[in-house]
Structure formats: structure tokens, C-alpha cells
Amino acid sequence: MKLSVRTVLWLALYLFMIFAPLIIIFIGPRPAGREFWREFAVALGFIGLSLMGLQFIPTARLPFLCCIFPMDTIYFLHHATSVVSLGFVLAHPLILIFSNPYVAQFFNPATSPWRVLSGVIAAALALLLIGSSVLRKDLKVIYEPWRMTHGILSVITLVLALIHIFKVDYYTAMPLQRLLWIVLPILWLAAIVWARGIKPALMLKKPYELKEVRPERNGSWTLALAPVGHEGLTFKPGQFAWLAVERSPFDIRQHPFSFSSSAERKGWLEFTIKELGDFTRTVKEVKPGARLYVEGPYGTFGPDFHEGPGYVFLAGGVGITPIMSTLRTLADRGDKRPLMLFYGSPNWDDVIYREEIEELEKRLNLKVIHVLEHAHHEWQGEKGFITASVLDYHLPEDRANLQYFMCGPLPMIRAVEPALQKAGVPMSHVHSERYEMA
């Protein structure tokens, strides 16, 4: 897979933004009497702060970024760069102390001047922010309160770090330096204003009404939505959206789900949701007529983003939803390219959309291989899991030319990716999105 020019340009801009504070250092006359380690510590601190400030951007779900990078990659970057930023931030005081132990006396909160104290508290809060995020699941912290605190703490940390810079007043002496230290945080925080203010306000004007709740196999439910007073959003098959069910779009309690309906069907959206967690268990109780808000579409999963002579889909359980949207869309478009679906389910009765998939086999050039974990005695098809031997047996000779889309639980993805590689599929043709956002 080659990176597009647009992707490279965005990455170059991102790198420039990370290191932009270093430019501030060079504005104005060169200060006298500062040794290498002190300057080095300051530069690392600036980069750490810049990296932290830029964290507001990936989680703001900016539409132009979400069409370039897969959402799970964006969140992965958010998590990984947070840890890196903490490393840079903590290196700043540590190097200062090691290079000049005299500095350590400033870290006594009772006697410390505010210019140092603000930096110490900011660093401590950064440690708490990132530590609580990394250990959230282990500490069994509930997602929603954590997320709310996470957002507020992030802003406080950023403000304290800026107070530290302005109070130390070393690289803020020149008016241009001060201006840049104001402009950069405005750029970082603009992402929050967009995500928490402008975007929900725009969504408020575009509500959806729940038209029906349909039971599906394997404890899943399909919600069908129609736009109220607007045309409704358009999406590409394989994409997903955040749903606010009977809640204001300003409410942070929104949940990501793949579209399962055809992208060619205008003014009608469907989401198929399996009862897995606290929220998904309540889906079946929502009554037709309920008000919903849909934020999206997001994601780069699906054939519209990866052109190919034919497609192979690999689904596990409710992971069929984005693939179902793709199959329905391709059928509506009259697509004649060869398609294969490897579909893993617990047993024959739990095959979600079983009947409709049989219908789609007639409308499309589609071959379906069901793989059942607990097959009944008369079952003639594949049993167990989607393994390298199952793939090798069914995949055509020209398998290396096809594009592969996989959606399912994480263990399945981890097992099937190497199986595909073993079966002779180039990994650059394998696309999978893991919906592990938090």
C-alpha cells in the first residue's frame, strides 16, 4: 500500500505542528549564559507540550482526517503519541535536575514560586491523565465519567503548562514569541470547540426518527432510521457513524456502529447492533418514533476506498454489518465482479442475515463459505474457524490481485491476518478496522 500525496501532506503538516514551538526559540536575540542541557530540557518540554496540545485534534473526529486515515489508526496514534508526549514532558524537569541539582529545591510546593509550581502541577496532571487512560480497563473505571474528566483535565493541564511558560518568561520575551504561544494553543483548542460546540449544533438541525426495530439472528437488532426535515447523510459502504439514541448531540454518550443498509438507498439508514454491553442491551427497547442523531460517516473500510478486480470479505458474527452494507450496495449498483464471503458464526441458527445472503448470492457474482464453530451433525460445510487451510482451499488462483475486507472480534482478526498471509495474500491488500476506540 502506497501513501497518497494527500496523506503525506497531512503527515508533513502534523510533524511541522509538533516541532513548531522550536521555531519560537530562535525568535529574538540569542540569550546568554544558558548551558546545553538546560536548553535541551526546554526544547524537549516544548515538544512534549506541543504533542499534548495536538492530541485534541485526532479525537475531535474531523471529517477531512477521518476520510484519509482509518479511525482505529487515528485512535492508536492518539494513545501512542500521548505516552510519547509524557516522556518528553517528564524529561524536561528530570534533565534540569540532573544537570543542576540546585534546581531541585524549586520543586518543594511550600516554597516553590508559581512559575515552577504551575509546571510541576501540569506535569503531575499529565501523568495522571495518561496513567488513568492506559490503566482505565485494569482499574475498572467506567468509560463515560472517565471520558468527561479526561477532557476537562486535558484543558487544565494545557493551561497550567502555558502559565508555566509565560511565568518563566524566557522564550516569551519578544512580542512575536508571545503571539505564537497564543496562536498555537488556539489552533489546538479549536478542535474541541468544533467537536463539542459547532458539530453538535449543526447536528441538532438534522435529526433522525426511528422507523422500526427489527430482530435479527444471534441476539442482534436492526434499527432503521429516516431523516426528519433534511435529505439525510450519504455514506460509502463499510463506513460507520456515532449514534446518539434519544439523547442530545451535545451528550458525550454516543456509540459507533457500522451502517448495514445499502449506500444507494437514499433517506434510509440501518444499523444492526448485537446485545453485548450496557448500551447495546437497551437498543431493542427503543420505540419507533424516537429521536436520534447520526454523526458521520467515518472510516476508510470498504471497496470504494480500495479499488480491485474482485473482493473477498471475511466476517465474524456481527462483524458482518459493514460487509452486508457493502454487499447490498454492490447488488444495488449491479456490480458483476467476483465476490467471496467467508462468514464465521457460532452455529447455523446464529448466522445473521442468513436468508438475505442467500438472496444476494442470486443477484451478485458471490460465493459464500459459511464456517460454523459448533456445526450440527448434518452440516456439510466448513467447521471450526477461518483458518489458512480453509482459505487456501477456497480462494481462487488470482488471490493476490483481490482486495480483502475483514471485520470481526479482535481474536479473529489476529488469527485470520496471518492465515491470509500464509495462503499467499499480500498484506497490503488486507483491510480490517477494529472498533476499539477508547
Binding site: 501513501l3 548551558e35 504533542l51 497490503s428
Partner: peptide
């Protein structure tokens, strides 16, 4: 696949961060 690029990007950020900081410090210090 994108994750591999993401890992490389993170490695680049760490390496560039340290190198550029050292460079800036070298130029500024006296």
C-alpha cells in the same frame, strides 16, 4: 497495514524530537 505506518510515524517523532532538541540546544547554548 496503516498501523505499521503509524508505528513508524511514532518512531520518527521520538527520533526527530530528540535530534532537533539537541540541535536547537547546541545552537542556543554558549
Amino acid at each position: 497495514m496503516m498501523r505499521q505506518y503509524a508505528m513508524r510515524l511514532i518512531a520518527a517523532i521520538i527520533a526527530l524530537g530528540i535530534i532537533l532538541s539537541a540541535l536547537v540546544a547546541q545552537l542556543q547554548a554558549r
